[in-house]
Deep mutational scan, measured.
Amino acid sequence: SGEEFIAMYTYESSEQGDLTFQQGDVILVTKKDGDWWTGTVGDKAGVFPSNYVRLKD
């Protein structure tokens, strides 16, 4: 389980282990570690910068 966040911006990365997503995607955040959080979008999982998302209303 985790908290749902909304992507405010598209995040694209070629780094292994990074979670890429489109603006407006719902991200289920499973771990918060400083500026880099872990989460899932659909069947993808990985880390992403926390300043790209906001808490879902």
Rank of each mutant, 00 (worst) to 15 (best):
S1V: 11
S1L: 12
G2C: 14
G2D: 09
G2S: 14
E3R: 06
E3L: 07
E4Y: 08
E4D: 13
E4P: 05
E4V: 06
F5P: 01
I6S: 08
I6P: 00
A7F: 00
A7V: 00
M8F: 02
T10V: 04
T10M: 07
Y11H: 11
Y11V: 01
Y11P: 05
E12C: 11
S13H: 02
S13Q: 05
S13L: 00
S13W: 01
S14M: 11
S14A: 10
S14G: 12
S14F: 06
S14T: 12
E15K: 15
E15M: 10
E15R: 14
E15A: 14
E15Y: 11
E15P: 04
Q16R: 11
Q16S: 13
Q16C: 10
Q16H: 14
Q16F: 06
G17I: 07
G17W: 03
G17R: 06
D18A: 13
L19C: 04
L19A: 01
L19Y: 00
T20H: 10
T20P: 10
T20D: 07
T20M: 08
T20I: 07
F21S: 02
F21A: 02
F21L: 03
Q22M: 12
Q22G: 08
Q22C: 11
Q22A: 11
Q22P: 01
Q23H: 12
Q23S: 09
Q23I: 09
G24C: 01
G24T: 02
G24S: 05
D25K: 00
D25G: 00
D25F: 00
D25N: 05
D25S: 08
V26G: 04
V26M: 12
I27D: 10
I27V: 13
I27W: 02
I27E: 01
I27S: 04
I27T: 03
L28N: 10
L28G: 05
L28K: 15
V29E: 03
V29M: 00
V29H: 02
V29F: 00
T30I: 09
K31M: 01
K31L: 06
K31W: 03
K32D: 02
K32V: 02
K32Y: 04
D33E: 10
G34S: 05
G34K: 09
G34L: 05
G34C: 06
D35R: 09
D35E: 13
D35K: 15
D35P: 14
W36A: 10
W36N: 08
W36M: 14
W36Q: 13
W37C: 07
W37K: 03
W37S: 04
W37H: 05
W37M: 11
W37T: 01
T38S: 08
T38Y: 15
T38G: 09
T38Q: 09
T38F: 13
T40G: 03
T40S: 15
T40L: 07
T40A: 14
T40V: 11
T40P: 02
V41G: 04
V41D: 15
V41T: 09
D43Y: 06
D43L: 10
D43C: 10
D43R: 10
K44S: 08
K44T: 03
K44G: 10
K44D: 15
K44E: 04
K44Q: 15
A45E: 14
A45P: 01
A45D: 13
A45T: 14
G46C: 04
G46S: 00
G46Y: 00
V47Q: 11
V47N: 08
V47S: 14
F48K: 03
F48R: 02
P49C: 02
P49T: 03
S50G: 10
S50L: 01
N51T: 13
Y52K: 04
Y52R: 09
R54K: 04
R54Q: 13
L55C: 03
L55P: 15
L55M: 09
L55E: 10
L55V: 10
K56R: 08
K56H: 08
K56F: 09
D57Y: 10
D57A: 07
D57S: 12
